[in-house]
Design a protein around this nucleic acid. Structure first.
Lengths: 145, 145
DNA sequence: GGGAATACGGAAAAAATTATCCGTATCCGA
DNA sequence: TCGGATACGGATAATTTTTTCCGTATTCCC
């Protein structure tokens, strides 16, 4: 089993949130569970391109962080369901904001990725060569570190 | 230069947003640039544990997606500054929400990660063994796929 | 000359994440 | 018996991200 070597620094809330939902399928999982897709096999069917192993791993991570809870039913064949916890639900407004922002940008994004695939040369478009500026340099955080 | 083999699917806004700000240092970079830390060397000094190469790469990715723009001043030694674009600024409320949520959870998070390091055996705490439920199964998205 | 400042890209290595493949278990039906 | 259903973990391989190391350039100062 893999053991990480480099310690991570969670000095800002963003880093914490990214650690919690940063895996490839986690946002899909949160969405599906919140929409009543609760059983592992159903989750897998809803995301056919995902590796079952990674779905399991990421479900376990969400569980570890208290975002979801796992309910095991004592029967055969095995029956398990996942539910969002109240804590997990506290994240939903944030997830919705992220989803909304991404949805607005999606069309542009796809065109960008398409043009990137075609040319692999899209640098420089937003480069601006400036004359010597007269703008007064303001205080920077770097100096405070 | 690395070329990805497995195509990614951006069928939801979350996936798009995660692609844009998903790198290890990107959220830090957005925060710093929004707080007037604009020059590459200053960004590096503000995040001493980051690899300079990756900072450059992730700045380029943010630029590619139009989140920031790079301004090159014609002078020696080289002078470059990065600015948030209006589009990048449209992301700030989302970033703030993410930051706020992560900040609230931070203390619990740290304790969790600490206990994980100690025992590597934290599974099962949220497991609930249930009697046969009488809850009526509702429609699932999986069936619609 | 060497070291400091500035900025940054290619190549290769290391670390981390994801995917594949093997295995565990029970029950039911062809 | 085999294949389907259910759920899931260890080991290993493949892919991806991050890091290290090499290099490019100019100017200034000791």
């Amino acid at each position: 089993m893999y053991e990480k070597k480099i310690p991570k620094n969670f000095s800002c809330g963003m880093a914490v949130l990214m650690e919690i939902i940063g895996g490839k399928w986690k946002s899909y999982l949160i969405y599906l569970i919140n929409n009543d897709v609760r059983r592992p096999a159903d989750l897998q069917r809803a995301i056919p391109s995902a590796s079952r192993r990674v779905l399991d791993l990421q479900l376990r991570e969400l569980e570890f962080h208290g975002i979801i809870k796992r309910v095991i039913y004592p029967e055969m064949p095995p029956k398990v369901e996942y539910f969002l916890t109240p804590f997990g639900e506290s994240m939903l407004p944030v997830v919705a904001a992220m989803e909304a922002w991404g949805g607005e940008y999606m069309e542009t994004f796809r065109q960008l990725m398409e043009s990137k695939k075609k040319s692999m040369l899209t640098d420089g478009e937003s480069v601006e060569i400036k004359d010597k500026p007269v703008i007064q340099r303001r205080r920077t955080l770097a100096k405070a570190v």
